[in-house]
Simulated assay, not measured.
Amino acid sequence: MAKNALQAQLLKAGLVDSKKAKKISKQTQHAKRIGDSESLETKKALAEAQAQKLEKDQKLNQQKQQALEEKALRANIIQMIKQHQIADTDGDVSYQFVDASKVKKISITQKLYDQIVAGHVVIARLEDGYALLPRPLADRIDTKMEGFMVVSNDTAEDTPEEDDPYAAYVIPDDLMW
C-alpha cells in the first residue's frame, strides 16, 4: 500500500503501478538516510567552525586583556617614577650616558654625580626626559617591567675574561672630560 496521499492518487489514476511506487518510496527513504548523514556532517562542520571561532575569539580577548594590563602597568610605573624622582637635580656637573645608541647629557649636582657613579642613584626614562631614582625603587620597577632604566651602575665589579690581554688595564668609568 502507498505511504502518502500522492502515491495513492497516482495508483488510483493508473499513472503508476505498485512496483514503481515501491521503487519511489525506497528512493525517498534512501535519500532521507543520506540526507540525515549529510546533515550530521554539516552539523559537525558547523560545530567545529563555531569551536574554532570561539577559540579565536578567546585568543583575541586574551591578547587585548594582556595589552590592557601592560598599558596599566606602564602607567603605574610612570606614576611611581613621577612621585619618587629626585627633585633637586640642577647643578653645574654634567653627566653623559648612552641611551638608544645616542649620547645624552644631563646637568646634576656633584653629590648626585657621585651617587650615580657609586650605583645608589639610577637614571630612568620618563616620557620625553629622564628622572633620577633611588636604587631600591629602580630595582622594584625593573622587576615589574624592563625598559625604563637607562643608567644603572652596579656596585659589583665586572669580572674580566681569562684570555683578555687588557685585563690588567682598568679603565675608570667616572672620568671627567
Rank of each mutant, 00 (worst) to 15 (best):
Q9F: 06
Y130I: 02
K23Q: 15
Q9H: 13
E162C: 01
G14W: 04
L54N: 15
I77A: 00
K111I: 05
S107K: 11
D173G: 13
L11P: 10
D173S: 14
K53I: 00
V170H: 14
N153I: 13
L40W: 08
V117F: 11
R125P: 00
Y95C: 00
D36C: 05
V16C: 10
I81W: 00
A131T: 08
L132W: 03
K43V: 05
V16I: 13
P165D: 05
K20R: 10
Q63R: 15
Y166N: 08
L54W: 09
Q29L: 07
M1F: 05
T42W: 12
D158P: 01
P172N: 13
H30N: 11
V98D: 08
T159E: 04
K22G: 12
M149E: 09
K44Q: 14
I108Q: 02
L68S: 07
I123A: 00
D92F: 13
S25Q: 14
A51H: 10
E41S: 13
K12F: 07
K43G: 03
V98P: 01
L68F: 12
I171Y: 03
Q52K: 09
A168Y: 09
E157P: 04
E146C: 02
L40R: 14
A138M: 06
S18W: 03
N76L: 06
I116R: 02
I123R: 01
V170S: 14
I106K: 01
A13E: 13
D174L: 01
G129R: 07
Y113C: 06
I81P: 00
L10T: 07
A49R: 12
A156G: 02
P160G: 01
Q96R: 15
D17P: 03
D128R: 15
Q66D: 10
K32I: 11
P165V: 06
M149C: 06
K20F: 03
A5G: 03
W177P: 09
D88H: 15
E161A: 10
V93F: 09
K32G: 01
K59I: 09
P136E: 14
E38Y: 14
E157Q: 10
L54R: 15
I123H: 00
V93H: 15
A21H: 03
Q110T: 04
E69P: 00
G129T: 09
D90I: 05
M176F: 09
E38P: 03
Q62I: 07
P136D: 14
Q115M: 08
I34Q: 12
D17V: 05
V170D: 13
L54A: 15
G35Y: 08
S107E: 04
A167K: 12
Q62P: 08
V151C: 00
I78L: 15
L68W: 10
K102S: 11
M80L: 07
L11Y: 15
R140Y: 04
T42I: 11
M145Y: 01
D164M: 06
L126K: 10
S39G: 04
D139W: 03
M176P: 04
S25K: 13
